[in-house]
Design a protein around this nucleic acid. Structure first.
Lengths: 207, 207
DNA sequence: GCCTCCTAAAATGTATACATTTATACATTT
DNA sequence: AAATGTATAAATGTATACATTTTAGGAGGC
């Protein structure tokens, strides 16, 4: 079990809600669990910290991030900015092969929509929409921001509200994509992400 | 010398051109140089890798990134997207105190423009423009993308072409900022960053 | 009951040691 | 001379050990 594998395994546990926002991660406990020494665990922690999934202060225990309302707001604004830009580039580049990959991802997403795989399938669908843009670094940044959101979604047991409307958005996105209707696609996506933000922020205690 | 300090020191050496793109970083050599064991150096490497400044493959030596033309292109597009958005938010939020901080940064930037501190001062100036937006995460992403660019700028000894025009852009940006002229400010900034990209890409061998 | 101070336990940070993998140099072959 | 194979050197990966720091819990005072 290399440090890279440990980082990936821990990332999955964090975004799946095994560790909650603010919860501590102890080097020793994790080292025992993966049957390695603390050295590779430390390496993995540095990676997770640089990805922004945990807070790491010297001599203090690692903690899963616990974002404030303002920070969540910023993350969703960044998602809107990066995802909409990626979608536009994607629509401009797209070929027929891309479209069929998207329709397969849409079908999968519909099947998983009401299971615990919904978040994974949702990302698979959106990734298929953005992939034709040919922007690997931008995709990595988007995936990272989405992981940040998932920590809170999974940690507080948030489920998508209005699953039907959410699936309708996906179908409408695919239609706009196929018709190369950039502006309509961006409008749908922006509202889609803003809706997700509302659902997450609704779980915060009112000020 | 903690791992965090080592990461920061190495980042500075990399973006200042002490290590060139593609050059190897050896744990042992760096450990000796900073008078520590290889453990904190390894921690620092993980941080630099997650920041995208070095490539890290298990069992292989760490290497400074060496971006292709396509990758440089993507980084500059991301900078335009994130920096212009930040500037707009900044203009909408700004107060008089912000303006005076910007004018101080502009003065510094003008003084350093033809010294080896030009890149640092340039970032200080742009950071002062973006800070009123109140977007710390977006700022960190921008700073990271700028570091990526600086690796190539410093590594290949690229100097800003047309320093006069570049300083004029800064002055014009401040004017637009003060007048809350969003669209004009974004136009200037977009062209300003696109010009920087041209200078960097010009150093690549023609295809 | 609540706060402060102190101590023991626990967790982290890193140096050292050693196993494993990769890189380099040299000899051998074509 | 170029290419291949091999042995040596060097670099990496991680387990262990120990120093340092933080955390947790309780005694004592207000």
């Amino acid at each position: 079990m290399s440090s890279e594998q440990i980082a990936d395994a821990l990332e999955r546990e964090i975004i799946c809600g095994h560790y909650r926002p603010g919860e501590e991660l102890k080097q020793g406990e994790i080292a025992n669990r993966f049957s390695v020494s603390r050295i590779p665990v430390r390496d993995a922690f540095q990676v997770l910290a640089a990805r922004g999934l945990i807070d790491l202060v010297p001599n203090r225990r690692a903690r899963v991030i616990n974002l404030s309302v303002d920070e969540i707001d910023e993350v969703y604004d960044l998602r809107i900015l990066l995802e909409c830009d990626c979608l536009v580039r994607s629509i401009r580049n797209r070929t027929e092969a891309d479209t069929s990959a998207i329709e397969r991802a849409l079908a999968h997403s519909n099947i998983d929509a009401r299971t615990d795989r919904w978040a994974d399938s949702d990302w698979m669908f959106h990734a298929s929409l953005y992939r034709p843009a040919g922007r690997p670094r931008q995709m990595a940044m988007i995936e990272n921001l989405r992981s940040t959101c998932r920590i809170h979604i999974a940690g507080y047991g948030i489920l998508p509200s209005r699953t039907d409307g959410w699936l309708d958005d996906h179908a409408a996105l695919v239609e706009a994509f196929k018709e190369r209707a950039e502006n309509r696609a961006v409008e749908i996506l922006e509202r889609h992400i803003a809706d997700a933000r509302k659902t997450v922020l609704a779980t915060f205690p009112p000020v």
